[in-house]
Structures are given as C-alpha cells and as structure tokens.
Design a protein around this nucleic acid. Structure first.
Lengths: 203, 203
DNA sequence: CAGGGCGGTTAGCGGTCGTTAACCTGAGGG
DNA sequence: CCCTCAGGTTAACGACCGCTAACCGCCCTG
C-alpha cells in the first residue's frame, strides 16, 4: 500500500475547495470565481481543468459513492478471509461501521454533499451515483441480516438508512476541536450505531 | 383545542409550496416565479404576502424551530403533571422522541430545510433560529441525563445530535407509500433511538 | 353609488452567474 | 533558437433572477 507523499495536483486542490464551498453554501450558492479564488487562480481558469461547474460536482459525488462502496467491498472480502477461518458477521458489521465513521469524520464536506446536492446532477451522473449508493446500502443490509436473521428486509433497509443518518450527523457536532477528541467521538458513534441496530432486532 | 377546518390562507399555501420546492432544489435553486406558479399566481404576486424570498425562508425556519421547542416544552410540562404524581423521565424521553418522529414524518420538507438552509438567513434570523435549536437540544440533554445520570454532558449532547440525525433520516426512506406504513416506521425509529441512547450509557 | 384597498397582472431594471473568446507567458524538446 | 502547449489572464456576452413600478379589477363599506 503506497502512501502518497507527492503534492496534491491542481485538480485535487480544486475538488477539495469546491467540496468545502459547496457544503458550506450549497451548489447554487457558490460562484466559479470563488472556487478559483480558493485555489489562487481566478474564475475561468478552472475551465482548463473541468468542463464546467457541474462536472466538478459530478466528479465529487461519483467519487464519494464509489469510494464508499469500494471500501465496503474490500472490508467484506477481508473478513471472508482465508477459506474456513472466516470472521463472524458481527465483526464485518463493526468493520463497515468503522469505515463509514472514518469517512464521516475525515471528509465532512463530502458527507454533507452526498445526500444534499444529488439532484443537481445530469441524469446520467445521477443515475450512476444512485446505483452506487443502492449497492452500498444493499451490502449493509446483507450483513445486517446475517447478524440479525429475524429482521425482515424492509425493516433492515430502513434501519440502515437511519443509521447512516446517525453516522452522517458529524457535521452538526460542532467544529473539530469542540469535540471530545476524534477517537472518543468515533467510539461513541460506533456504540450508538450498534445499539440502534440491536434495538431493531429486539422484539 | 380547536381543530382547524378552515381553508388554508394564501400565505400558508405559499409557505407550504416554498418549503417543498426549497427542500427539493435548494433555496438558490428555486425562483420566485416557480413558487408563484405552484400556488397559481405568478412571480411578483408573492410580494403582496412576503417582503422577499429571504423572508419566506426565515419564516419557515423560525417556525420550525419554534414549534419543535414549544412542543417539547409542552410535553415536558405535561409529564411533570399534577404535583406529586410525576411521570418518570423515561416516559418524558419517549414523549420527546415521539414528538420529533411525528414532526419528521409529517413535515419532511421542513425537516430537510432546517439543517440545510440555515446559512442563507440574515444574521438576526439565523441567530434566533440557532438559539431556538440550542434550547431544544439542551432540553433533550437535560431529560437524557435524568434517564442516564452516568453519561457526561458532552457525550449526551453529541448523542442527542446523532439521534436527531437518525430521526431526520426519514426523507431518505423513500416516498411515503414505499414505507411499511407510518405507524410501523414510527415504531422502528422510536426503538432505534432508544437503543442508540441506551448504548451511550452502556460502558 | 363612490371609493379605497387587497391581491393580482405585465414590463422592465440592475446585478450576478456560467461560460466563451482572445490573448499571454514560461518551460521543455527537436 | 524556435515552436508548442499547458495553464493562466481579462473582457465580454447572454441568460437568468430578485425585485420594483405601474396598472387594474373586484369586493366591501359608508
């Protein structure tokens, strides 16, 4: 696994700043001049890197959804592990939760965007993002139903969406610094997510 | 308690449609002409009822925050009930959860707006909404700490924000109709919220 | 029956926004 | 040493948007 030490490319700077601005003020609330200014170039210079404002949002949203799904698939595969010595479904669920929490804590603007600006995408992009999101949800539903086989599928799906709401609440927890420390927050969120799931199963 | 049978006033129609549109496409994504069209009048006719587009958003957000807080205060007072025969804190917590769920299920667009478009308000309005929201949170925190006295205050506050995230996830649960029925959904959310809170307390 | 105001209408103004056009500059390669 | 081209710049255009101006008809009241 190669850790990246190289400086971020211009495209990456732009995407990062655009994500922050879109999350703060909404897609329509940010002008291309502001995005340019945030990376030290001005307005139309962005068009050397992106086809338009829409393209930036599209790349951000597809990127998020894809990386969430990819991460989840990897965790699922790792847990299935070497044949025979397979980890329990509880551990897989914990791993999924941990991954989602890492994402929510480390990429707050993206988490904010990803359920807020979806409708601003062109049809093709929106369809792709929706499909990735759906796959991600279904992956969680599958694991959840291995842990709690008694829970019917519609309830499991609702529960997963609700726990996403819980985990994605990090942007409302105050600026990072007023928090009691990242690890503590992560542990708290993890426990709450497990508690919420357990309550679904409890008759 | 008088049930209102009268037809909704023009102002109320406008507010309702504006809330729906703002929630769907974002404050900046909706034009005044669209809002007008949604109530059968056109564009500038709105200015007979509101000072401007901002004023509609302000009235919506202040209204939501205020009605949430007022409802919560009422429930708290009812629970304290007749002197001496006071309901347990668990029941109060359940009542708060129930009230919030009713709101999230019945006024989805407002729930969406209320944590999404706050920054589009004028300073004075935003300050007022923030204050109402803070009071609402602190009321929950107080009740939660009566139920689980061992939970330190910062954790309780984070937990409350997270459970709001959980309860406010209803807009992601698909259109009302794909849901397994309102009562079932409400019960599920209620159980999950209690489960999440319980998990905070469990060491 | 006069008149006033409530609740509409259309036209249009001023500003902003996304995007394009035209131009410039500095570094790398034949 | 020139040519190219990636990555900028500023100017400007066309569309759109929030809001105001000016006007109008209906209903209610004195």
């Amino acid at each position: 696994m190669a850790t990246r030490t190289d400086a971020p490319t211009r495209r990456e700077q732009i995407l990062k700043e655009a994500a922050r601005l879109f999350a703060e003020r909404g897609f329509h609330g940010v002008g291309v001049d502001e995005i340019g200014a945030a990376v030290g170039i001005s307005g139309p210079g962005l068009y050397r890197h992106f086809a338009g404002k829409d393209a930036m949002l599209a790349e951000l949203l597809v990127g998020i959804s894809d990386s969430l799904l990819t991460g989840a698939k990897r965790r699922l595969a790792e847990a299935d592990g070497v044949a025979g010595s397979d980890t329990g479904p509880e551990a897989v669920l914990d791993s999924l939760i941990e991954g989602h929490i890492d994402f929510a804590l480390d990429d707050r603007p993206l988490i904010t965007l990803h359920d807020r600006e979806l409708d601003r995408l062109r049809d093709a992009d929106r369809k792709m993002v929706r499909q990735l999101q759906r796959q991600y949800v279904e992956l969680w539903v599958g694991v959840l139903r291995q842990v709690y086989p008694a829970v019917p599928e519609p309830s499991a799906r609702s529960a997963v969406h609700s726990v996403f709401g819980l985990l994605n609440s990090t942007p409302h927890l105050g600026r990072p610094g007023s928090l009691p420390g990242r690890a503590v927050t992560a542990a708290l969120l993890h426990r709450m997510a497990r508690g919420a799931f357990a309550a679904v199963a409890a008759e």
